[in-house]
Write a protein that binds this DNA or RNA. Structure first.
Lengths: 211, 211
DNA sequence: ATTTAATTTAACCAAATAGTCAAAATTAAA
DNA sequence: TTTAATTTTGACTATTTGGTTAAATTAAAT
């Protein structure tokens, strides 16, 4: 019984891992079931045994990745700390996360853009309006001190998240314009440097903001 | 003679426009030649008459769009003005450009990411290192005053471009987390507001930067 | 050991899709 | 007006690709 489940688990997770790789690399439309099977080291029919269709396999992978990404983004902002501390922690941890998962943002942005319904399930789970209120309410004083009104929160949050996500999403385009960031060692060094740069940049902009 | 060319031009550009739409929406892998033909109002065989293969049609579209995007980004930074003025003008014009071409960034980022060789041709055309030197050399004094060293330029440039590009690329994900930006009127208003927000944010961060 | 159930495979199938071609229609040239 | 060249089409082909099925293999239960 245990052994059986272990075996199922092994095959299933081999498939799942292979599918994750291929979908992240090629997207839904570009992914091939045969390629996933090959990379998992199994027969193509076995894919359909465990995950009836390409859609179902994709959905399984997609939702795990979507959750992974959002949990990372949101968890830090739910902790107890000043906004400044949260922002710093967010940039540190999120950039580490992105260095380990460089293909994740572009994959998610794309698939959601091609089919917004994909993320529909998350809307209820997230209840972002509550989260946003929570973030703002919690830091209302601190943020007012920076001249940030409630209505400015989207601008600010998108700026902060963009600071970490954009360079990773745009990496291959950046590599064209900035050959000095071409190889991954140098790019990762750039991302490491971005922790300080982004945190300093945002804090300076906030502290000296016209109110 | 003139008429003939005009007719060719008409059909070719009908095909080209349709292909642009479909590729931008679906990406290379998700695009269908039949759909492009339908949208152009012509027979599928005519696609292959004017553009021998899907690859050739894609390449034609891709390179026009890539050029369009990069020209917009770079042209402003090549003008005669202070760095501050250029940045302001860049954010204004680039955000207007992105409002009119909302699908362009994600499309380009994706296709380049799936096949970095696609952008290979641009490397020589752009000679970014020269451009970067030019930008820095031209504004060396101004930027030093802000505590920006030559080695900080990638961080700064990526931050500025990300300010305009990221919200558009991440639009559908943002719509999930921020339902208040869901409909396009409100999102465009957000992007209009971003001209001021981003310019103010960057300038404040620069002016008060620790040196 | 034998039977039953779960897992895996090789060989197929059907639909989708890029691409072809010969002939028809249209347009330009003689 | 006739001829030649170009453009457009309908019907077709080859390949790719997601998905199926029946048989073989392995594990579990009796």
């Amino acid at each position: 019984m245990v052994k059986k489940r272990k075996l199922i688990g092994q095959t299933q997770s081999k498939i799942f891992d292979a599918a994750t790789e291929v979908f992240e690399e090629k997207g839904y439309a570009g992914a091939r079931m045969q390629v996933i099977a090959d990379r998992a080291g199994i027969n193509k029919a076995l894919l359909h045994y465990y995950f009836r269709t390409k859609d179902q396999l994709f959905m399984a992978v997609f939702h795990v990745l979507l959750k992974k990404m959002f949990e990372k983004i949101l968890s830090i902002f739910m902790e107890e700390a000043t906004f400044k501390e949260k922002m710093r922690r967010f940039l540190d941890e999120h950039i580490e996360f992105l260095i380990r998962n460089p293909k994740l943002p572009l994959f998610l942005l794309n698939e959601i853009s091609r089919n917004p319904a994909l993320a529909e399930g998350l809307r209820e789970t997230l209840q972002y309006s509550q989260i946003r209120d929570l973030i703002y309410e919690k830091h209302s004083k601190e943020l007012k001190g920076y001249g940030i009104k409630k209505s400015d929160m989207p601008q600010l949050m998108i700026t902060i998240v963009g600071m970490s996500v954009f360079p990773v999403a745009a990496r291959d385009m950046i590599a064209i314009m900035m050959p000095q960031l071409n190889d991954s060692r140098k790019f990762n060094a750039f991302m490491q440097g971005r922790k300080d740069f982004a945190a300093g940049f945002v804090m300076t902009a906030l502290k000296n903001r016209k109110k």
